[in-house]
């Protein structure tokens, strides 16, 4: 594997992308789990599909259009739930098939329909390029800065939103920032995990950390360990057994979760 890593740039980029996305997911996942936003993550992932399809048709920047469609989706959800027009989950349930159907319709008009669809749905880590790496690093910086600036605000927001709002925490700003970095993380992870398997990155590390930690700092550390170990193990297994990395990483993460939480000690 090391020889191939030295020889092939695409493999180095794939490994680097996997490491960075795992790092990013470790910060995002606990919030997704504690705020019960699993469905939003799924919705944003599906929304990304519309942007990716537009980029594919225009032969344009996939990251730009992916971000655009996921952010538009996230803003819709945020706006409608804040205005109490519809519940958050209803809004996601309504918009998810709309964005997905839009993407499928657009892609159906391209020649590489089946190949593209499969890559977007289940991921293709070998498609990662340098721009993707820069993008992930950018999202990591954004997420880490938000964490550093608003660490306490985020903890109070998750712990008791009503009281946090009353005593002066800017809960609308915090929820918007969270929505943004969840959206950006989903776009960053989509080439590795694909839309369908996104949960392995944005849900599983948080679920593991929640089951095994008793402080928010501990949660982030354990989420980081889980995310890194399961991704790198999955990546290595995929390499040696010639398997698609996205599904292999997802199954590895699930196996690690089951094994570790069976012997958990808080």
């Amino acid at each position: 594997m090391i020889r191939d890593l030295v020889t092939y740039e695409f493999l180095r980029l794939a490994l680097l992308g996997t490491i960075f996305v795992s790092f990013l997911a470790a910060f995002v996942s606990p919030i997704v789990v504690y705020r019960k936003m699993e469905f939003i993550g799924d919705g944003v992932a599906h929304a990304t599909f519309a942007g990716l399809a537009i980029a594919s048709i225009l032969s344009s920047n996939a990251v730009f259009f992916g971000v655009l469609s996921s952010v538009v989706f996230a803003l819709f959800v945020w706006y409608f739930s804040k205005k109490n027009r519809f519940s958050e989950s209803s809004t996601i349930g309504v918009l998810l098939p709309v964005f997905m159907a839009f993407g499928v319709l657009l892609l159906s008009k391209t020649r590489s329909y089946t190949v593209d669809l499969s890559s977007y749905l289940f991921g293709n880590v070998l498609l990662i390029n340098k721009n993707d790496i820069f993008f992930v690093v950018g999202v990591i910086l954004f997420t880490v800065i938000v964490y550093l600036l608003f660490w306490r605000d985020i903890t109070y927001y998750i712990s008791d939103e009503k009281a946090a709002q009353f005593y002066g925490i800017k809960v609308n700003l915090i929820s918007l920032l969270i929505m943004f970095f969840v959206s950006l993380s989903v776009v960053a992870a989509v080439k590795i995990s694909g839309i369908i398997l996104m949960g392995s990155y944005i849900v599983l590390p948080g679920v593991f950390a929640k089951a095994t930690s008793r402080s928010f700092k501990g949660i982030i550390v354990k989420s980081l360990l889980f995310s890194m170990i399961s991704s790198l193990t999955g990546f290595t297994i995929a390499y040696y057994f010639d398997l698609p990395p996205g599904p292999t990483i997802a199954l590895t993460a699930f196996a690690v979760l089951i094994v570790t939480t069976s012997f958990k000690r808080k």
Binding site: Y34, R152, T155, Y156, I158, S159, D160, E161, K162, A163, A164, F166, Y167, G168, I169, K210, S213, R214, S215, F216, G218, I219
Partner: peptide
């Protein structure tokens, strides 16, 4: 607020919990 607004699954210690107005 009503006590059911508290996310009791979230690991926050009692001292931090009551210190919210002081932090703000």
């Amino acid at each position: 607020p009503q006590l059911n607004t508290v996310n009791r699954e979230f690991p926050m210690d009692v001292l931090t919990y009551i210190s919210l107005p002081l932090y703000v």
